[in-house]
Nucleic acid binder design. Structure first.
Lengths: 361, 361
DNA sequence: TATTAGCACTCGTAAGACAAGAGTGCCAAC
DNA sequence: GTTGGCACTCTTGTCTTACGAGTGCTAATA
């Protein structure tokens, strides 16, 4: 059964007001604000029904109403006004994105910081699990005891490592190892670098000094690092400006959880297409610590068939509309800059699709 | 004028107790705990004098005493027992240090995290300002439009960048640029890379495609990044477990300040020798936001004549003794692993020197 | 049948009163 | 110089009370 039009309007008004004020909202306030021409008594009747339907609740008998997770869910799915960013806002984001993505080195951290600044909530950035391979292998001879390993990965990131040895190596050996590794270690996944492969390479190189295993270890480490989903969380302290986290213990619990890292991943699994924004409200979160917080996540195309996630965490009383708009725009901007190709041109707002648990109760 | 032996004992007892309980300590408690054979009335007389001398204060008339910054300072300089870590503790630190320093890539973050975990206070890790130069320059040709810049710095860190061009370049040009840059850009500081030098290199390379400036920009960026002191702060949320930060606003203020980054640097300037631990108590801090917090900083030898700093931030009621011992040990361990040479052998506790504002009032 | 005005009722919050307790300062005695 | 004793101060917790916001319900109205 669907709610009457008026109930929806009232619910939306309650959520809007509560998001703004963080205080239970009463019938009178709604009668005045929402433009439906009826008295507070009528509103009261409707509110009572919305309570019994589970969309609202009262902290106590004589207080106003507060949305339940179910209420927020309906609000997010159907009622809320899809915000578009103002021109200034979107230009600002683009500018900052350009400034930051110069050095893509730890872009994930920068992106997280940016999201947090934009939304004023703690933000997280995640890289998805991928199957990166090595594209090419270079060894730079520095001196008899030193060389630099340079590895370029299939996702076009480049890693290096300075290796210092107690023994001397000649350039010929370096040369030989370089071509051997280029021959047998490129295009393979982490799992395919077996002890067997390493040993056969070692034999082929006629390497009695253990160089092969040093280099192979670096290859494994690099691939491992690139394959492991990484999480970066910033701006935890912004939680403290939210009234629902005035209790230091509560704030501490959530902040420690967030600082702990990427436990949020399971929730972010099985993410759909690009530029979709997913909203997880209160108990919809799997993690116990997030059961009365909300998470908004956007996904972007990080190039090379990998996806990145970017999201924020806040109280269930979150400004979903604004946050979704900003994250969506941010994700689209990232896709455009990092992604494969067929992204919409800059400046164009992409359609905002919000998805989530639609069971509705 | 120096305090009487008994006053010192009493002051130490007050500070010790207050550090533990975070509550004003009364005469009776001291009479019982500290082993001086006198009654609470005597203690009261002494306490009154310590108050008028400025070492203690009372929150209100009928409360116990609380140390002032001056009191903490005396405690830190003269009174507190220098803790040594237990064997398990030091072994634990060494183990963790070994585990983390494998990948020295963003060691600074790991070190900061470790310090925070060990002390249960927010921790910061800083790199000092240095004058890094470029040691060698390599350009790896990938394809006609792509090459990898690899730069090895005088502090033995290696940076790379993948450059993708809209135009084609041939290997000869790459070769030429590589030797030119190795000839004129190595051994020079950031400031010495002038537009003039870049232009003359460009001419010498006969480069009409702007490659020179791309490479020079990378050199500047790399040197700039290595020279700029970087700060890494972790564990801000641990503040929330301290009773003095139960006020969310106060906690928020300090946490935002900390998240903001390396403003603490000025305080850490002009740092003395290795393995010295510096304590800055309350108003001794220059930053307004730190005026009623304390900072403990240790310095370590990061190799190549550069120093690193590692420290923690907490309430003035900080367990200085334990923190100083841990940071000192940590710093020594880092010096040993990163530093030049003449570090003490592993497992040996280095002498703990604590220095700070010794004006004493 | 839906809406509205009116009114009694509930319940959280703020303010004031009060007792308890911890700790002090001071004085007189040792 | 030290100590026991005692009156005094000030915070903290609890209780009471008054207030007010907001409700639910009923009866009147369109």
């Amino acid at each position: 059964m669907s709610l009457s039009e008026r109930k929806k309007k009232i619910l939306a008004a309650v959520v809007d007001a509560y998001i703004q004020t963080a205080e239970p909202v009463g019938s009178k306030a709604i009668a005045e604000s929402a433009g439906l021409g009826c008295s507070s008594a009528t509103i009261r009747n409707e509110l009572a029904e919305l309570v019994s339907l589970g969309y609202l609740e009262q902290p106590h008998t004589s207080a106003g109403r507060v949305p339940t997770p179910k209420g927020y869910r309906l609000y997010v799915n159907e009622l809320m006004q899809r915000q578009k960013l103002s021109l200034e806002e979107s230009e600002d984001i683009n500018r900052r994105l350009n400034a930051r993505l110069q050095e893509l080195d730890d872009a994930i951290g920068d992106v997280s910081r940016l999201a947090s600044q934009l939304t004023d909530y703690p933000a997280l950035a995640l890289t998805s699990q991928t199957a990166v391979t090595i594209k090419r292998f270079d060894i730079i001879y520095v001196d008899a005891n030193t060389f630099i390993l340079v590895v370029m990965l299939s996702n076009n990131s480049v890693k290096n490592k300075l290796v210092h040895l107690p023994i001397s190596v000649d350039q010929t050996m370096i040369q030989r190892l370089s071509s051997l590794f280029n021959a047998s270690f490129t295009g393979v996944t982490e799992a395919e670098i077996t002890p067997l492969l390493i040993r056969s390479t070692e034999r082929a190189a006629d390497d009695s000094m253990g160089l092969t295993s040093v280099i192979a270890a670096f290859a494994l480490e690099t691939l491992g690092g690139a394959n492991t989903p990484a999480a970066f969380i910033t701006g935890e302290n912004r939680l403290l400006s939210q009234p629902e986290f005035r209790d230091p213990d509560k704030a501490h619990r959530l902040m420690s959880y967030l600082s702990g890292g990427g436990h949020i991943l399971p929730a972010a699994d099985s993410f759909g297409g690009t530029d979709e924004v997913r909203v997880l409200i209160g108990p919809e979160n799997v993690a116990e610590e997030l059961k009365d917080s909300s998470v908004v996540i956007a996904s972007y195309d990080a190039g090379d068939n990998t996806r990145g996630l970017i999201g924020v965490v806040g109280p269930t009383r979150m400004d979903y509309s604004a946050v979704a708009a900003k994250l969506s725009f941010l994700a689209a901007g990232l896709s455009r800059r990092l992604g494969g190709g067929e992204a919409p041109p800059e400046g164009m707002h992409n359609k905002l699709i919000i998805k989530g648990d639609t069971s509705d109760g």
